[in-house]
Amino acid sequence: MLYFDHSASTPPYEEVIETMVQVMRKHYANPSSLHAGGLEAAGLIGRSRALIADQLGTTKGSWLFTSGGTESNNLAIKGVAKQYRSRGNHIITTGIEHASIHEAMKQLESEGYRVTYLPVSSSGHVNVEDVRAALTKETILVSIMHVNNEIGTIQPIEEIGQLLKDYPKTLFHVDAVQSLGKIPLDPDSWGIDLVSGSAHKLRGPRGVGFLYVREGVKLTPLSSGGSHELGFRSGTENVPAIVASAKALRMSVEGSLQRNIRMKQLSQQLRTFIESKPELKLNGTEPLASHIIHFSYPGMKPEVIVHMLEQNGIIASTKSACSSKENKPSRVLLALGASEMHAAGGIRISLGDEHEDRHIEELSLALTRIIGQLKPLERGSNY
């Protein structure tokens, strides 16, 4: 099987698996314990925290460990909203955020917060001037993703961060789950206060998330029960997974330059093929992350295409894995102005380290066969 679903989850590095097993065997003590075993475990967490800061060049804050990107996003957004309610109750985000942010915003709205959902262009990008226009004296948080998890568009995070430096009472959160360890991100220089990431998106283990919190930023914890993770998150830390996640991030960062060069070539190869097929429509335009290619076959149910790809030995997805089982048009594509038919037929291809030219060729041949099979069903079909 060819696996083209790296944006949903990635196969862990063999070295990461080995590290996790070794730490699990040797360092099983509770890192909050005061005996030698506990202190050794706590030391491993501290070194992992420092390693991530070093790899990502952050010196003005700390990295927390959570259970994943969803918890990191929720802790950042709800933690800020509740902590700084006295400053105001207005939050700015976009209409194309991941479900963990979109639903968190909806929950905050039900609690009396006012949320502005910025529009995006037909290319899938937010306008910096729209951010400026939405800011008010009551704005306590701006939360905008770096790379869209569905169509791969890169948002102007650096420019937004520079804008917000003139608004010191407004915090800036970036969901970097699809970009951390893959494309450049400089939280300190770009004026970002909070950054979310996820280990299993960069060939680490599931169950570990990252959250960068700039020095001086306070968060109201989502859970009670202890002073773990610098007081922001209660719960005994998963030491083996944390150490393995830090290693995965280091390996991802160190290989990112060559990976991006190769993936850009593969991505362009696939995009050229899709553009040659009138039945298929590419979604999103540059700037785009090279590891995500999203297209639609308007009028065809995406799950049908996914199953047909699997029959051809290829694994792909429809949209975000968290939303793929929802039988409704893509919220992201609708935000781009796509018709319901177009928005209902999206397929996401996401690349990984193992992919080569021949794999793109195999995928292209499979799509050609599938189009040939589906073409007669286009008109008047229930698909």
Score class of each variant (00 low, 15 high):
G352S: 14
P329Q: 08
L363K: 07
L363T: 12
V332D: 06
H342Q: 14
L336W: 05
R348Q: 06
A338K: 15
L336P: 00
S364W: 00
A366Y: 15
L351V: 03
P329H: 07
S350M: 04
L365D: 09
L351T: 02
M341V: 13
E361C: 10
E340A: 11
A366H: 15
S350G: 03
S330P: 00
P329E: 06
R358K: 15
H359D: 13
R358T: 14
I347S: 01
S330L: 05
A338S: 15
E354Y: 10
L334N: 09
R358C: 10
D353P: 04
G346V: 00
S339G: 03
L334H: 09
D357K: 14
G352V: 02
L336Y: 11
G352L: 04
L363D: 08
G352N: 08
S339C: 04
A344S: 15
S350Y: 01
L336I: 04
G352Q: 06
I360N: 05
I360C: 06
E361D: 11
R331K: 12
L333Y: 02
I349N: 02
E340Y: 12
A343H: 03
E361L: 12
A344F: 10
I349A: 03
A343P: 00
I360F: 02
D357W: 01
H359K: 11
E340T: 13
D357R: 14
L336R: 12
L365W: 13
L351A: 02
S330W: 02
R331D: 12
D357T: 10
E362G: 11
V332F: 01
L334V: 08
H342M: 10
L333T: 03
R348T: 09
L365R: 13
L365I: 10
D357F: 07
S364A: 13
A344L: 13
I347V: 11
S339Q: 05
E340I: 09
M341T: 13
G345N: 01
A343N: 03
L363V: 11
S350N: 03
R331G: 07
E361H: 15
I347E: 00
E356W: 03
A366E: 15
G337Q: 05
E340F: 08
G345T: 00
L333C: 04
M341A: 11
A343G: 06
A343V: 03
L363I: 09
H359F: 06
R331M: 12
I347L: 11
I347R: 01
P329N: 09
E356G: 07
G352A: 08
L333D: 07
E356N: 07
G352H: 04
R331Q: 10
H359Q: 12
H359V: 08
S364L: 01
L336T: 09
S339D: 06
E340S: 10
L333R: 06
E340G: 05
G346P: 00
H355L: 05
R331E: 08
A338H: 13
S364R: 02
E361F: 15
A338D: 14
A344M: 14
P329M: 07
L363A: 08
E354V: 10
A344T: 09
M341C: 12
H359M: 10
I349E: 03
L336C: 10
A335Y: 00
E354D: 15
H359I: 08
A366K: 14
E340C: 06
I349V: 15
A344Y: 15
S350F: 01
L333N: 09
V332W: 05
R358S: 12
E361R: 14
G346R: 01
